[in-house]
């Protein structure tokens, strides 16, 4: 019979495993993946722990992949220069289960903002090199993930188009009012 301590450790490991799998399932680019495929993604991700005040990534650094927050809080901060003065704007505050930087899986474009941990934060990173590796090693799984990224991009493009047309409408109305 296994000792209670060992059972406890195994239980803890299992629950951590489940937490990771659950977090992966909740990310939009890993939608519609089977349990086996989720396990495959789990094997490809890197677990990192950041202290309060650590940056996960910094603005303008080359994008290399995405992060899923397992525990903790992350602020997305954008630095701007107004004249010679540097200002910082908090764009979002992300918590456990949220994810960031998924479009960096496609190219090395510089990060548009920095990700700062405001408390002890545990993350899971999934990177472009591993996605390309997955396309070679598990083509079906790789294609599913790339298709999901394309869907996310499509959704965002539609929202951007909608916002743009709304803005144009407003602009037209404003012009008409002036006339």
């Amino acid at each position: 019979m296994a000792s209670p301590l060992w059972t406890q450790i195994r239980k803890k490991e299992k629950s951590h495993d489940e937490l990771i799998k659950e977090a992966i399932k909740n990310v939009n680019i890993f939608r519609n993946l089977s349990d086996k495929e989720i396990s495959e993604v789990k094997n490809a991700v890197y677990n990192r722990t950041y202290k309060k005040g650590d940056y996960i990534f910094k603005q303008d650094h080359p994008g290399n992949g995405m992060y899923i927050i397992l525990t903790g809080t992350v602020q997305i901060i954008q630095e701007k220069f107004i004249g010679e003065e540097k200002t910082e704007e908090i764009l979002a505050t992300l918590h456990s289960g949220d994810f960031l930087g998924e479009l960096s899986l496609l190219d090395e474009a510089p990060r548009s903002a920095s990700a700062l941990c405001t408390e002890l934060t545990e993350t899971m990173g999934f990177f472009r090199g591993d996605l390309l590796d997955m396309v070679n090693r598990k083509p079906v799984l790789g294609s599913k993930i790339i298709l999901n990224i394309a869907r996310v991009l499509g959704e965002r493009l539609r929202i951007t188009n909608q916002m743009l047309s709304e803005l144009q409408e407003k602009e037209k109305e404003k012009n008409n009012e002036h006339e």
């Binding site: 950041y50 650590d54 990534f57």
Partner: peptide
């Protein structure tokens, strides 16, 4: 993963990116 675990958070993304490209 074992090698990259030794890299501090500050240089993690850079090291991973360079390792991938070199490989």
């Amino acid at each position: 993963k074992g090698i990259i675990r030794l890299v501090p958070n500050k240089h993690f993304e850079m090291s991973l990116n360079i390792m991938d490209k070199i490989q």
